[in-house]
Design a protein around this nucleic acid. Structure first.
Lengths: 144, 144
DNA sequence: TTAGATGCAAACGATTTGCGCGGAA
DNA sequence: TTCCGCGCAAATCGTTTGCATCTAA
């Protein structure tokens, strides 16, 4: 487990470029995000992270917030009370969320919105455009 | 102002069908939602509502929650701490949100996702599918 | 008459912030 | 040595819930 993936190193490099220090908490946080195929809440990140480094929830909060500001991490709303986060280097994903149990599936579709983004950027004057697409419904298991 | 729009009446009828009572709070709540062209938070609904009827925040919460369960109201995530709500009878909307100031614009585009919904419903076994599409960026005013 | 709706106040859960110490640069 | 990052603890904020009272049906 002392093996470090090239992704982790380049992410750390990316963070350093953005003025973040190479702390053990940052490293562990990125590792957790890298190893998950789904967006995680701050709590979930904190929990996984603590298997490796003791880390206060406030620290996780500040780390992830900072990463989001630097646009290394993407925030995702879903409808749960807590926000979810994933790395931006991961391909953009669209999600299918169950209204009842909150389960999240990653959709295996070509996102149909990419081309709209440029058009909207041009027309609106918005910068650094980005989007979020989720489908909500009741999953098979929750249909009694 | 004693004029009642046909929409309000049919909404109330819809609510009654769903087992809700015709209380003044419900009426006022629907009125507020009807009169807004943008999704509102519970607080915003409560504030507008109080111009007409005294109403506790907890009541607004329970009203809107109930309306959401009955699928009369749609919940929208955005990235603010508070959830936003709008009526389902309004046409489906997609939004353009500023990451910095939180301003919300309603996009005047044909939603490109409608046809995907059926396909996803079929493939996933999910029921009552619905979706949410938002673009996030930095609005012109926030670009210093 | 009675089950659903409200107000009030307290509990909750997820951030968010102030402050003083410790470690990366 | 300096300034950013961290832990700890307290403050916020947006819900969420329990309970007694009120009211539409």
């Amino acid at each position: 487990m002392s093996q470090t993936s090239p992704d982790l190193e380049s992410l750390l490099e990316d963070c350093a470029q953005n003025g973040l220090r190479r702390t053990s908490a940052l490293r562990a946080c990125l590792k957790v995000l890298l190893s998950s195929d789904q967006p995680l809440t701050l709590q979930e990140i904190g929990a996984k992270l603590n298997q490796e480094v003791e880390c206060d929830p406030a620290t996780v909060y500040r780390l992830v917030t900072r990463l989001e500001e630097k646009r290394i991490v993407r925030r995702i709303g879903f409808h749960s009370r807590a926000a979810h986060y994933c790395l931006r280097i991961s391909a953009h994903q669209d999600y299918l969320v169950c209204r009842d149990c909150g389960s999240v599936e990653v959709l295996d579709i070509a996102c149909p919105v990419e081309h709209l983004e440029k058009q909207i950027a041009t027309e609106s004057g918005f910068r650094d455009l980005d989007h979020e697409l989720e489908f909500y419904g009741q999953c098979a298991a929750c249909q009694v």
